[in-house]
Design a protein around this nucleic acid. Sequence first.
DNA 1: TTCCGTGCAAAAATTTTGCATCATC
DNA 2: GATGATGCAAAATTTTTGCACGGAA
Lengths: 150, 150
Amino acid sequence: MLISLTLFLMLEEKLNNFVNRCKEIGLKITPQRIAVYEVLLKSENHPTVEEIYEKVKEKYPYVSLATVYRTLETLEKIGLAKKVCFWGNSARYDANVSEHHHLICEICGKIEDIELDQNLNIPENLKGFKTEGYSVNIYGICPECLNRNS
Amino acid sequence: MLISLTLFLMLEEKLNNFVNRCKEIGLKITPQRIAVYEVLLKSENHPTVEEIYEKVKEKYPYVSLATVYRTLETLEKIGLAKKVCFWGNSARYDANVSEHHHLICEICGKIEDIELDQNLNIPENLKGFKTEGYSVNIYGICPECLNRNS
DNA sequence: TTCCGTGCAAAAATTTTGCATCATC
DNA sequence: GATGATGCAAAATTTTTGCACGGAA
């Protein structure tokens, strides 16, 4: 109960932040944009474009898949979403843009965000690259797949 | 000179190993398979399927893209290649299947293998996942893109 | 009113599949 | 000779794009 209230406030805050960012940059605030971002914020896993589209359609049946693609691209451009490394053949998105890591099931492809208590010390210059950050993908088998296969 | 000789020997060894694996499992050894694997082994970067296809075509002009797709899938299945996390929209492959890490250019998408002198200590059990390994993606800007944009 | 964003449909790009033929074993 | 792999073409999937219209500023 308390948790869901907290989550709700976070959601509101993030949506407000989004609206402000849009105003700043001169992007128009449309219901579709809000809806796409809201669906992404509410997603526990890292949804594919198609999955986001389906969710948005529940609220706006006439929304177009192209709009979802374009909105996700916009969100990525303004730094509110990230395309994540994917397992299958379609792009997945994540609204968690803080530096974090992923736990990936090698069987079903499920991806969970994860915090690590250890840090890597990455030099600013590696093989001539100017480095900017890193993310760790941990591979394994998720609880559901472990059960199913035993 | 010495280096290229060493590389050549490694290549021969890996190709031999591949042939043996095929015999073991009952896969037929075809020129196309060898060619695809050889191209992948020789690639410095992590080529897309299309890029591999183009290279293989230089030697076997009648090769089909479908064969390249199927061969890469086979290579992955027998553990001699890996689909890597990708940046753009098409799959990339890597013949380096040992545990290693990636340095990724955020502008052009180039991916380089990299060794790290630090290790993360990953618990065997994380959020119910049975973990099996990890890889680190370091993001940054490659020397060429740094030059181009300055 | 001015534009940007949207929906729609078509196109492009990527990947998979069915099937007859061919090559390896 | 049997079987599995290949090439080709078609289909399926995923993503992008052009353009006219509508809605936000």
